[in-house]
Nucleic acid binder design. Sequence first.
DNA 1: CATGTTCCCTGAGGGC
DNA 2: TGCCCTCAGGGAACAT
Length: 270
Amino acid sequence: MPELPEVETTVRGLAPVLAGRRIARVVANRSDLRRPLPPDLGQRLTGARVTGLGRRAKYGLIHTDRGDTMVFHLGMSGRWRVDPSEALTHDHLLIETDEGRRLALNDPRRFGSVDLVPTAEVEDWGPFGALGPEPLGESFGPGHLAAQFEGRIAPAKALLLDQRVVAGLGNIYVCEALHMAGIAPSRAGGRIGTKRLALLADSVRSVLLAAIEAGGSTLRDYARPDGELGYFSKQWRVYGREGQACGCGTVIRRRVESGRSTFWCPKCQR
DNA sequence: CATGTTCCCTGAGGGC
DNA sequence: TGCCCTCAGGGAACAT
């Protein structure tokens, strides 16, 4: 599931192919993703030079010298393949550079999206307007979490998943960060002590950094057409490990709430 | 406003 | 072998 670290890894993988290059060809195979592809996507991108890439929350950003920024979201199942050796079902968008490098956006579930946003307005673009701070940025830390959690009755897990509280976390890294900080997912946000909240802020950052590092170490897999991501999965402490032993020896539990699985250790997390 | 629920979508995997 | 069922979950929309 592409969360912040997977998108960051993706952007880092796209950068060597796209940065400074001119987009020579754009092919939209089907446009009914989460939102329809911009009808004029091809016109606006073809011939444009990529001036840089970036990321905001779980969105990848591709800036061009035409004043447009291409904003993509990978949804649940999206990924970019680099120089694919064959066309696959669900290759919805193809991009070719002036060097002949090719990119294919493959997204079976079509929960992802591709938008063109005027670069000057990207920060205020609808989905970005209410986003909380980047967890790896300077404005995120113990103070921010304390302010956001104060007086809240909602479970810590729900608050961390709320993109307005902090941007870019998904189910996997929320479960991992809460375990690292020793906080039960169901604990009300307002009933977590200051020191514990500071530990949570640290945990969020370190789990994301570790995942990005793991993604970087397997970057070659990212470009392999048949490769699965699997970046950080070997380092999961609780996610996907129901019934297995936590590091403390206690059996890891799973609970489904409104269709989402929560994994936690009842001994380490209170 | 805060919180909780549903829906969208397709492929993988388990049970029989 | 094949069919049916459940599950995966971000984010928008809707309900409470």
